[in-house]
Amino acid sequence: MQKLKYSTSPHIRSPLSTRRIMIDVCIAMLPVCIMGCVLFGWNALWIIITASVSAVLAEVVYRLIARVPFKQIMQEFDFTSLVTGMLLGVNMPAFNYAQGWYVPILASMFSIIIAKMIFGGTGRNLVNPAIVGRIFAVLSFTRVMTQWVQPNLPAFSNEIIPAGATPLSQMLSQSSYTAVHSMGLSNLDLFLGTGIQGVIGETCKVALLLGGIYLVIRSVIDIRLPLVYIGMTGLVTVIINGFNFYYFLPSILSGGLFLGAIFMSTDYVTTPNTKVGNYLYFALLGILTALLRKATGMEVVSFVILFMNLLVPLIDKFIVNKPFGTQKKVNSNKEVAKQ
């Protein structure tokens, strides 16, 4: 008789695996990358490729230095670094690649090595590596990271947009979301990314939504959580601007909110472990994004996500599921008081 496996139950395992989830995220990123390249041209393509390749290489080289056999690295490769690299790539403006080629490389290395690997690799990072990499690049290479480029597809309203700023920063600096319309951009332009300046992946909301729908269908993410984030941002913006519902669509359609809500904040590692904790986390993200946008006059999505990532251990400490059938504690003081 042949040798049998002997182990405790359960004997069957779901087809779900870390690798499958991460491959799904990569597939969901494809429309965003493609639309980014369509809108911003060759520079965008090279930036995304450079960021992705250097992120993967950074992980492999780090593990080689840590004396992990190459064969094991290949077996355990779970595509998380590729996801980080792709996210980092689409989080950069389509600057002149010949001038700024080192930015995606350094940002990828920083995010993989500093934010992920030294904490223990996949699943152990405190904050989302792609967010850390983006913030590192914005603060270190501000000039390169603010080279906004006019997209290849013109706005349907066909007017000239003042160079050097994204529509969101214009709106925020004039502290009025209606500024976008005085600039000659409609909500449709904001939705399609036509005529909108910004980072490679954030302008085309259609592509982001497509990726999001794919992730929801593959049940990688829960559809309600990004909706809570986006909805909260819109609602709070409406409220702090004196219940002006005209602000709702421009506020959610501009800036990196969709990219942040669908891809950056839904990272498993840096979200709470309970349903209730997750709703709280995403609601707080939305509230903070709206308030800080108003207060600072800047796009703050990545900073807010970084900040909330650091709050997750606290949320997980205090919001814990109660076992099914937990008996309500009889409050002895009340009982005494009744008597």
Partner: peptide
């Protein structure tokens, strides 16, 4: 039928 069971790090996916 058993499916793959190679253990990796917890993802905190919940």
């Amino acid at each position: 039928e058993l499916g793959d069971a190679n253990t990796t790090n917890c993802l905190n996916c919940g």
